[in-house]
Computed example of a mutant assay.
Amino acid sequence: MYDWVASVDSMAADFAARVKARKAGVSNTIAHRIRELDRWMESATRRASPAAGDQFRLRFGG
């Protein structure tokens, strides 16, 4: 139902934090990883929250 979901792997956010830290040239500290996971969770929660019309995106039956 969510086309923006690429993975539900528990380490996906951690991997993304590691890549982002490397690209930015900063250490991938626990604090950095927590900030990235918090940012991801806030975004995911906002995007997954029901909105008017969402029920029409659900598919029922075979």
Score class of each variant (00 low, 15 high):
Met1Tyr: 05
Met1Thr: 12
Tyr2Lys: 10
Tyr2Ala: 14
Asp3Thr: 11
Trp4Gly: 02
Trp4Gln: 00
Trp4Ile: 03
Val5Cys: 10
Ser7Asp: 14
Val8Ile: 13
Ser10Gln: 09
Ser10Thr: 03
Met11Arg: 11
Met11Gln: 10
Met11Pro: 00
Ala12Asn: 04
Ala12Glu: 12
Ala12Val: 09
Ala12Asp: 14
Ala13Asn: 03
Ala13Ser: 11
Asp14Cys: 05
Asp14Gln: 11
Phe15Arg: 01
Ala16Val: 02
Ala17Val: 06
Arg18Gln: 14
Arg18Ala: 11
Arg18Asn: 06
Val19Ser: 01
Lys20Ile: 10
Lys20Asp: 09
Lys20Phe: 11
Lys20Asn: 03
Ala21Ser: 09
Arg22Val: 04
Arg22Asp: 11
Arg22His: 00
Arg22Thr: 03
Lys23Ala: 02
Ala24Asn: 05
Ala24Gln: 12
Gly25Ala: 03
Val26Cys: 08
Ser27Asp: 15
Ser27Trp: 10
Asn28Pro: 02
Thr29Ser: 15
Thr29Tyr: 07
Thr29Gly: 08
Ile30Val: 14
Ala31Leu: 11
Ala31Asn: 10
Ala31Asp: 12
His32Asp: 01
His32Trp: 15
His32Arg: 01
His32Ser: 04
Arg33Leu: 05
Arg33Asn: 13
Ile34Ser: 05
Ile34Val: 15
Arg35His: 08
Arg35Lys: 13
Glu36Ser: 13
Leu37Val: 12
Leu37His: 02
Asp38Gly: 06
Asp38Thr: 06
Arg39Thr: 13
Arg39Lys: 15
Trp40Tyr: 15
Trp40Met: 05
Trp40Phe: 15
Trp40Ala: 13
Met41Leu: 14
Met41Asp: 00
Met41Ser: 06
Glu42Ala: 11
Glu42Lys: 13
Ala44Thr: 06
Ala44Tyr: 03
Arg46Ile: 02
Ala48His: 09
Ala48Pro: 04
Ser49Tyr: 04
Ser49Leu: 06
Ser49Gln: 07
Pro50Gly: 08
Pro50Gln: 03
Ala51Met: 13
Ala51Pro: 03
Ala52Ile: 01
Gly53Tyr: 12
Gly53Gln: 13
Asp54Pro: 04
Asp54Val: 01
Asp54His: 14
Phe56Lys: 02
Phe56Gln: 12
Phe56Cys: 07
Arg57His: 04
Leu58Phe: 14
Leu58Tyr: 00
Arg59Ala: 15
Arg59Asp: 11
Phe60Ile: 13
Gly61Asn: 07
Gly61Ser: 10
Gly61Trp: 03
Gly61His: 00
Gly62Arg: 06
